[in-house]
Design a protein around this nucleic acid. Sequence first.
DNA 1: CACATTTTCGTAATCGGTTACGTAAATTTA
DNA 2: TAAATTTACGTAACCGATTACGAAAATGTG
Lengths: 327, 327
Amino acid sequence: MATIKDVAQLAGVSTATVSRVINGKGEAAPETIEKILKIVEDLNYKPNSVAKSLSKRESNLIALLIPNLDSPFFSELVRTIEIAANKKGYQIYLCNSEDNREKVEYYLETMADNYVIGAIINSLHVKEEDLERLEANGISTITIDRAQFSHAYSALAVDHIHGGYLATKHLIESGHVKKIAFLSGPKDESSSQDRYQGYLKAVSETDAEHIVKLYGLFDIQSGYETSYDYLSNHKDIDGIVCSNDAMAYGVIRACADLGIKIPQDIKVIGYDDTVTAKFSVPRLSTISQFKPKLGNLIINELERVRKKNCKPKKYEVEPELVIRETT
Amino acid sequence: MATIKDVAQLAGVSTATVSRVINGKGEAAPETIEKILKIVEDLNYKPNSVAKSLSKRESNLIALLIPNLDSPFFSELVRTIEIAANKKGYQIYLCNSEDNREKVEYYLETMADNYVIGAIINSLHVKEEDLERLEANGISTITIDRAQFSHAYSALAVDHIHGGYLATKHLIESGHVKKIAFLSGPKDESSSQDRYQGYLKAVSETDAEHIVKLYGLFDIQSGYETSYDYLSNHKDIDGIVCSNDAMAYGVIRACADLGIKIPQDIKVIGYDDTVTAKFSVPRLSTISQFKPKLGNLIINELERVRKKNCKPKKYEVEPELVIRETT
DNA sequence: CACATTTTCGTAATCGGTTACGTAAATTTA
DNA sequence: TAAATTTACGTAACCGATTACGAAAATGTG
């Protein structure tokens, strides 16, 4: 691997000049520029990222902290962000927290000493003081979705209350739905609670009745288990609003096992509009929130906040209802 | 952020001593060690990874090059590897190639100048000479699955031929299956071709007949589209062997749309045993290959090969048949 | 006690870049 | 043509660690 010294030597100039030319900073004579660029080309010289990071005290890594990769929702998120970041020359430092505070802490620390320039954060376990610490270390942050919206930094959030409302209202109006249940994510998870608020609001506006709130872990298995347990002992509901698609797939499976027909006997709605929703049997009605262009929005916001004097912004994504076959 | 200089100054020693003590290299007086460690503790000093990488010319990043994150197969792979890497103090540099040679090249280059210590590679577009270049730059490699098995470096592969054989044999024997089709991934994709070999072998051993080979893109949508197109024009098959689970879900959906009953009218088998397979309607019979412990195996192999004089090894994972409801 | 060994630790170079500052040469201005 | 200004580029410090080498201090040996 050629270094800047090799280039400088061959060009008969100092490394400072080479650096300037490559980065287009300061002045240089046209012939010098040409000579250097030719040598760079010949040697296939690429500045070493690590050295660059050290001297500039910033890398081109963007940390992406997420709780897991199992759910399609997150893998789709990672994908859209990776593509957007890549287009701008950033790379992704993947931080998979497994929803575990220790791993979150580990990653928050390594972010700083890897000189990542920004962090995209989706985690129950990140508190405002963690964001403060990151910003103090020059790492701009943007939280997505699950973390609170009310901290002092940039955030992108879906209006979960409205989403929950939309889902529930539609579910109720899609048939003779009178008695409904809400299948929530973990108790300490705020987006689920918000969706639940919207759910309650919709219930109060109609003559439907809220029967029970169930809890899952946002994965297909827990969706299956909790709904199977409940439905095999109770026949009192005809609609279930799920806090994400993965759990809804579990519900669909549980109903199939129990001989409950969707949407005739019971209607189901998910949340996220993951790719599978279009192809499940039956196809899942759901709430769509993230679209590919959000990757760009997130990366752009991170770049924007990095410039001093740029105030953090809050973004809200309007959830949209996607009607398919389960309602 | 405290640096090694701060620690050295407070302890009244040189940075060299601090470095030695922290890394447990060379000798140091017990009191000196104690004093330094105390200050490290007090200051919450963490060595800067970037500086460390530069001076040692190696980071603790492991590159993970995969074609996409859409398919659960890859997101599960990323997850198991992230967990294994993390346990050993490595971090993941995520390289999502979108199955695109340009992005592959971009990432191969950035690997070297990020001083990643190893690369886990799954890509159609990586050739043996790319592996050579990586190794020449001190990056040990292990290819997984889709890339050829025959290069000079470490590799982990599933015996796709045997897997295809197992799947097909079971499909045929699970009912009165006489006329079957193979739903392949992209034409240039070797694992699919291997599975197809196994498929043909199984066909030849039974009285079933191979009718058609269809091509998809390994995703649910293409699985749906190709099978829908074929099945709406032909009623001549009663079994489909799919080259991965995602496409099998597409087939299931297509059959539902066409009023074809699974497994009564047609039997379907997938490949990968993704989490959803247990919960789809109907539950998908499939071939299981990667288990969580493979993450550890991969990371260990990467560590092993790094030591000079350690010859690359080839690993084969035995595919296993998982019988569910589609056969 | 003189000498050999060992222990402990500091000096300084290095990894591969960036950049503030200064200076010599080229150009402009009067 | 001398002074002022601008252009082009080099010197050297720096980012935050690691490490080869050597020297001083401590310890052991006869």
